[in-house]
Design a protein around this nucleic acid. Sequence first.
DNA 1: TGTGAAATATAACGCTA
DNA 2: TAGCGTTATATTTCACA
Lengths: 174, 174
Amino acid sequence: MSLRNAQPARGAAPAGTVDDLDRLLLSLLTEDAAVTNKALADRLGLAESTCAYRVRALREAGVITGTRAQLDLALLGYPLQAIVKVRLGSHTMANVSQLYDALATAPGVIQAFHLAGADDFHLHVAVEDAEALRDFVLRHVTTHRVVRQTETHLVFEVRRGAGVLAGGGDRGKR
Amino acid sequence: MSLRNAQPARGAAPAGTVDDLDRLLLSLLTEDAAVTNKALADRLGLAESTCAYRVRALREAGVITGTRAQLDLALLGYPLQAIVKVRLGSHTMANVSQLYDALATAPGVIQAFHLAGADDFHLHVAVEDAEALRDFVLRHVTTHRVVRQTETHLVFEVRRGAGVLAGGGDRGKR
DNA sequence: TGTGAAATATAACGCTA
DNA sequence: TAGCGTTATATTTCACA
């Protein structure tokens, strides 16, 4: 079980299998990646060595891509968040990918979504105040010639969702 | 400087001040929260004790709200992502907050945005396939009576943005 | 799975500028 | 007051049995 075998074992899934225990583990790590291995092992009823082994395997398999610190943006002086919808006038490959690069690296952008549909991109941004928001759009979005239209919506609140591991193991059995 | 004083010092900002060094620190921790204190200190040219001190202070001040493991959703079996726009028919406080709770805890939801504008919520979801996406919308969104309309858009790609700390210290000087 | 050695983190201290 | 270096203690990690 689990993804210890990167080599195509018998009838296993291509990139290794993640079992329910792994899912529980991942679920706990997405809540708080700073938990000690001991605490993790205790909560799952595993030996510490086994627990550490599984976590390392998940990391090496690429399932865990990294761990990041979460910041309180308001405390940092960026209390205003918005979604900026971006529509292009031209959709050549070069245009799109170049703009995507520029948008994703613009200061204040938390996440950049490349979408199918009328909106090409959704930018989730955090800024100091309304003026900074206007500046952001004018400076980093509408300056690009390919951008035909933008629409900015205030974000009242963002919540982390339950994620794909919700339920703790009853999903993914298809 | 920095946020050692939670008490309202002279003309300082309410919750303490975050200086450029703190911002650099935070920037590194948002990239990889698993770095050792020693590595952090080395990279910033700080003494380990000082570095640990500042990180702890940032944590206690609430600037760092936690650390989370990032997962490769595709590897986990959820290769399809979408933005589900949700519009309500009624906007009473109770309706909105109750629905928000339900949406944010629905399995598959990565993030839930509560927005100003025509769309009340944007849900960023990850699912197994197109069928699961349809099921998600029918089961967890349109079932709620207050939901008047939904619109689902495929996500081609999501990128982490530069964040508010981009530039490493030249921002926030207003 | 359990164990033990090496590495690391934490907290407290005095000292300096 | 912020930073530094040191200490002692607790904890973690890693390789191996």
